[in-house]
Simulated assay, not measured.
Amino acid sequence: MRMTKLKRLALTNTLVLGCLATGSAAANGGHFLVDDATITDPGTCQLETWASRFSGESFWVLQPACSTVNGWDFTLPAVYSWGDNEFVELGLEVKTILSEDFAGGALAITLGTFFDLVDDEFAGGFVNFPYSRALDSYWTLHLNAGAEYDRFSSNWDATWGVATTYALTQHIELIAETAGIGSDDPIFGIGARYAFERFDLDIGIARVTELNDTVYTIGFNVAF
């Protein structure tokens, strides 16, 4: 399926609500390509979901996530294909903060694995190290470095990502990012998020240069 590489990049992102009012590092999360070095508040859960349109196909992603009181974040992303009328991929991700004071920012690690529900077999896994640093009261930098294993090709490929977030207002955040896998051409994206008290709304557009195609996404996140 042509969506696989994009979805595996997108699904490495962890479920974290944007915390503009707290002054902490802004969270990308969800369908955005570049992860941040934060987790869901310990002892709480959230549900993040989004719909994407890509190359004439529509996909829906459902991602529930919960964090333990000792700081481990668990996420179960599931990908549904509207064209096939079925769930096509299921994942499991675990994330924790390694340091809140690393080179002036925060450093985390995420480990994940994916299962192909169509062929009923293990599809691959990844490790990612997100780094986030607030540059000032408006701008935040996010860097990602890691590796991804594709079981079908039996290859490990390096993964990377760079993003900046800008706090336009107390509730509105703008995001610009780029990310890639191995020697593939990078993906470029822009988006915006509006943060309410307990939930967020966001939109995004990503250009997949290797496939010369564009992904359009709208998402919704709620904490409980």
Rank of each mutant, 00 (worst) to 15 (best):
E93K: 15
G124T: 13
F199G: 08
S183Y: 12
K5V: 00
A123D: 15
H142C: 09
A106H: 09
G124P: 02
F74Y: 08
D136K: 06
P186T: 14
G124Y: 08
L141N: 02
I187V: 05
V88A: 04
P64C: 09
L6I: 03
G180T: 12
R198D: 13
L201A: 13
A192C: 01
G18F: 09
I39N: 04
F54S: 00
E48T: 06
W60V: 14
F87Q: 05
S67F: 09
T209M: 04
T49C: 01
A223G: 09
L76T: 14
D184L: 02
F87I: 03
A103R: 09
Y216M: 01
T38S: 15
I181T: 14
K5N: 10
A223K: 12
G180L: 05
L211D: 14
A26G: 08
G219F: 00
E93L: 12
A27W: 11
G18C: 01
L33F: 11
V215F: 05
R198P: 08
H171M: 06
G124R: 09
E148D: 15
T140W: 12
G189H: 07
L111G: 13
G105Q: 07
A167P: 02
L168I: 10
G56Y: 12
L15M: 02
S154C: 00
R193D: 04
S52F: 05
F54Q: 00
F59Y: 14
Y138Q: 13
F126G: 07
A123H: 10
I109R: 09
V94H: 03
W50V: 04
E177V: 07
V79Q: 14
R2E: 10
S153K: 14
Y149W: 14
L117T: 15
D73A: 10
D120N: 15
G125L: 09
D35N: 13
L168A: 15
S67Q: 02
G182D: 00
T75M: 00
